[in-house]
């Protein structure tokens, strides 16, 4: 009789162990799905910031292409501030995305009137953080200047949905033709 009572005690332990194992498995499955959702969201914000940073870098290259001589003159005259301070999306109305607004949640290219010009599906900004002249090459026919440009971009898709990134590129600009390598 005593032996039988001891065996019935084991059953409770086995059931508890089984229940704990199942709970652990479900916890990790739920956690893994939550992680996947979080990672997808982070990937989206990261990509949005990445393309804004590249937009800023293209904007900076555009200005260097258009005003290569003036940019060099800035540095040769002892300029030490950011000569590309104007390459800032918040300073130009057509590219000023601003902060996230609630009405942006209904932005839709597939629906008539839901994606008017001068509006954006989310907020954000980019600007040139710094530019430095890394060197000049005057001995060849082509006079070239080397620059290192750092662009910062920030995305605002709502509260707690922000992401920022920066991008650094080195480039060689032909001082009189504006060609960029």
């Amino acid at each position: 009789m005593v032996a039988m009572n001891k065996k019935s005690g084991i059953a409770v332990v086995v059931v508890l162990f089984f229940a704990f194992s199942i709970a652990t498995i479900f916890f990790f499955m739920a956690h893994s799905n939550t992680n996947l959702a979080y990672q997808n969201k982070q990937t989206i914000y990261q990509m949005q910031a990445y393309y804004l940073a590249h937009s800023g870098m293209q904007h900076a290259k555009l200005q260097l292409r258009l005003l290569p001589k003036e940019t060099y003159e800035f540095f040769s005259a002892g300029g030490s501030t950011n000569v590309l301070v104007d390459v800032d999306s918040s300073q130009h109305i057509p590219i000023a995305m601003g902060a996230f607004k609630n009405q942006q949640a209904s932005y839709d290219l597939f629906k008539e009137g839901k994606a008017p010009d001068n509006t954006f599906p989310y907020g954000g900004k980019y600007h040139v953080e710094s530019i430095e002249l890394t060197g000049s090459h005057n001995r060849m026919k082509m006079i070239q200047d080397g620059y290192r440009v750092v662009v910062k971009a920030e995305v605002d898709s709502g509260p707690t949905k922000t992401f920022s990134t920066d991008l650094t590129e080195e480039m060689i600009v032909s001082r009189f033709t504006g060609g960029i390598n």
Binding site: Q63, L67, E70, F74, V83, D86, H92, F110, A115, N118
Partner: peptide, 23 residues
């Protein structure tokens, strides 16, 4: 779907412009 807007000289009352300030 992709929407493209030309940010040209006439598209805005304050179009994009380029500035430089020499010392």
């Amino acid at each position: 779907r992709v929407k493209v807007e030309d940010l040209d000289e006439d598209s805005s009352s304050a179009p994009i412009q380029f500035t430089i300030e020499l010392p």
